[in-house]
Write a protein that binds this DNA or RNA. Structure first.
Lengths: 147, 147
DNA sequence: TTTAGATGGTTACAAATGAAACCAGTTTGG
DNA sequence: CCAAACTGGTTTCATTTGTAACCATCTAAA
């Protein structure tokens, strides 16, 4: 009889690892600022790119548009971002972080980098290369935007 | 000003990849049998090990005990598994797949293996090795049970 | 014993999510 | 022009999830 060994099954390993990393990482934005993951990603997207539309945010950070919509609404409620309607196309809104939003972003960036550094701290140079190239290979083979 | 590049940030890449893989993989158990992920994992755990307790299931497949509890309840409702109280400790229940549950498991196993094969199909031998060792390195550095 | 604390598992409640319907506004083809 | 189809974004509803509280049972220490 054919058996599946869950522990070595790639989709399961990937998910469990991502889940554990993500859970740990969420402390940075959740414990400190009470943000959800979509809210954090929205902040990160705007912090990185300055001004974006909701659609662009969804594409950049791989979120469904309902998640983006809700995250934007919440950040707006906090006055961490503002919407500016597009001149030409009135369906579109341009989103930008306020001073407060930008300040929160700036405060978190070093923490996120430290987190990543710590995560890789125990690994050898070869192992890090392995992760980089392994992920890249899977991404091109699967993630639509990267295909 | 310090910026975080989301696209190359490890936690984000991991999560997005796992999410995409998982979403694709879920077709096997969701579309065909209407199972949720916890239900699928429960099935997979019992298929692999024969008989387990809820706690053991949670440990093996990295699920919170409420997820396990609900998944077990649903699989029991479908008559895909049965509970047998422990003789010595009456808090514990031993879970086993029924014939129907086992049949569903047996039907899915080849599909899951084919999925994994396809996922890796486009990659070179080096890339596969890279994934294996990269994940392993991160796992030992992070996932509690593997630490 | 008795009792305080652990442990296996369930439940209640609030929050997060996804799918689909929806409401502008915009483009396209006749 | 004008309707059909499309697009950006929001809302609704059902389902899933996480946290915490909760039973019941078991263990250990006084």
């Amino acid at each position: 009889m054919e058996i599946l060994e869950l522990e070595t099954f790639l989709p399961y390993r990937l998910y469990r690892l991502a889940d554990a990393v993500s859970r740990e990482f969420s402390r940075i934005y959740k414990d400190r600022h009470g943000l959800t993951r979509p809210e954090w990603r929205t902040l990160a997207g705007l912090g990185q790119h300055g001004t974006m539309t909701a659609t662009a945010l969804g594409e950049q950070s791989a979120m469904h548009k309902t998640k983006v919509s809700r995250a934007v609404a919440e950040l707006e409620r906090r006055r961490w971002l503002t919407r500016k309607p597009d001149e030409k196309d009135r369906r579109i809104e341009h989103l930008t972080l306020t001073g407060t939003g930008l300040a929160a972003y700036r405060e978190m960036v070093p923490l996120t980098k430290a987190f990543e550094r710590d995560l890789l701290a125990g690994l050898s140079a070869e192992e890090r290369t392995a992760i980089a190239s392994g992920l890249a290979a899977l991404e091109t083979s699967l993630v639509p935007s990267k295909g």
